[in-house]
Structures are given as structure tokens and as C-alpha cells.
Design a protein around this nucleic acid. Structure first.
Length: 205
DNA sequence: GGCCCGATACTCT
DNA sequence: GAGTATCGGGCCC
């Protein structure tokens, strides 16, 4: 399958976020493919967007967002979680798409192992295994399952030899896509808090 | 299904 | 020092 080229990401962030639904995120890890269908995305667009990490201008953390489109912006939050974004728009304009959800397609066993590590020895580890659809249905969950952390911040998804990239698949049809406000922006002022910049692909079997 | 809470460390004002 | 683009567990319908 062909990989999405840089040109795909060098476009308006809302278009990129919408069109990433249904595409296949691939992580090469120790020679094995871990992959999933992208089921939820979110747009963060420029310094004016007061939910965007670039709202303070160019800082050590946000610098990657000011760089080339098609590059991973991976950041740490809540003291324990990593989040995967892909930089969008022209170089110099800070914007990115947060990947918030996946449906696992390849490497399920290894994803389960990675996800299970945190709960080892706890009551959770003795529970019935999570259903496949719940394994990577959150931004921190998919980062953990695909072994995505600070080592991949700045990684070029378009470069030959990339260990993280996105393969082109059939576009998600409109009747399976819903839009809504972005998640978790509890202290973000309006109108940014309510902008419908979250896109979801309906779970359909 | 829902709500509440604690964990945990890094970010920038 | 305050806030955080989250998650899982515990509890209650």
C-alpha cells in the first residue's frame, strides 16, 4: 500500500483531520508491523486557537509544530501519557492533527502486551481481556500500544525508512463520520472550546 | 451506562 | 505554582 506523502499533510488541518479517518497508521517496531485504522482525529490550528500548544508562540515543546508537515509531534501530559499528532499546513504555520483512536488491524498480540504492562500485578491484570475495539480507543492508549513516546517526536512520516507512517486506504464515507467539539478542553475559552474540530468514524461491523 | 477521583511530571505564566 | 489535548478503578444507578 502506498504511504501518504508530505503533500497530504501540507493542506488545511481540518481537511487532513477528516481525511485521515479510515487510513492505516503503521508502526514498525523490532521488525514487526503494528497497525490500526484511524477512527478519531482532532485539529489544532495556529496560535489563535487557544487550545493549541502553539498559543504561547514557539516554545521548546511547540517548536515541532512550526516545522515541516508530515512530521510527528509527540508530547507528554498528565504526568504519564504520550500523545501522537501529525504536523500539518505550510512550514512556519503551527498546526497538527491529534490521532485519538485506532481500530487494531495488525500486531494485536503485541499491542495487548504493551497495554497490559501498566496493570501487571493489579486486579486489572486478572480481569477478562479488553475487547479489541477498546484496546486503542484513546490517544494515550494507542501511543502505549504502538510504543510511541518522546523518541518519535520530530520523526518524519514521509521519509523512506520511517518507522511510523500512514498508508492510504479507502476514504471513510460521509455517512459514517460524525463531528463534534474537541475533547478535554475544560479550561479553554470560547469559541475555541466548542469548535467542531473532532472527527469520528462510526464503529460499524 | 454514569460520576468522581487519584496518579504523576512536565509545561509555561 | 497552576494547569494539563488521559486513564482506570471504585462506586452507584
Amino acid at each position: 500500500m502506498p504511504r501518504l506523502p508530505c503533500a497530504f499533510f501540507a493542506r488545511p488541518t481540518q481537511n487532513v483531520a477528516r481525511e485521515l479517518l479510515g487510513q492505516r497508521l503503521v508502526r514498525l517496531e523490532r521488525g514487526q508491523r503494528l497497525a490500526g485504522l484511524i477512527t478519531e482525529t482532532e485539529a489544532y490550528i495556529g496560535q489563535d486557537d487557544l487550545a493549541c500548544h502553539a498559543r504561547f508562540g514557539r516554545t521548546p515543546r511547540s517548536a515541532v509544530m512550526f516545522g515541516r508537515p508530515g512530521v510527528a509531534y509527540v508530547y507528554f501530559t498528565y504526568g504519564m501519557h504520550w500523545m501522537l499528532n501529525v504536523v500539518t499546513e505550510a512550514e512556519g504555520f503551527p498546526a497538527a492533527v491529534l490521532i485519538r483512536g485506532l481500530r487494531p488491524l495488525e500486531g494485536e498480540a503485541r499491542m495487548r502486551r504493551r497495554r497490559g504492562l501498566a496493570g501487571m500485578g493489579s486486579r486489572a491484570a486478572r480481569r477478562a481481556p479488553a475487547p479489541l475495539a477498546r484496546l486503542t480507543d484513546g490517544p494515550a492508549k494507542l501511543a502505549q500500544a504502538l510504543s510511541i513516546d518522546r523518541r518519535l517526536n520530530g520523526h518524519d512520516l514521509c521519509a523512506p525508512g520511517a518507522v511510523l507512517y500512514i498508508e492510504r486506504a479507502a476514504p471513510a464515507p460521509d455517512d459514517q463520520v460524525t463531528r463534534g467539539p474537541r475533547i478535554g478542553l475544560n479550561n479553554t475559552p470560547e469559541p475555541w472550546k466548542s469548535m467542531a474540530w473532532n472527527w469520528k468514524l462510526e464503529a460499524r461491523d
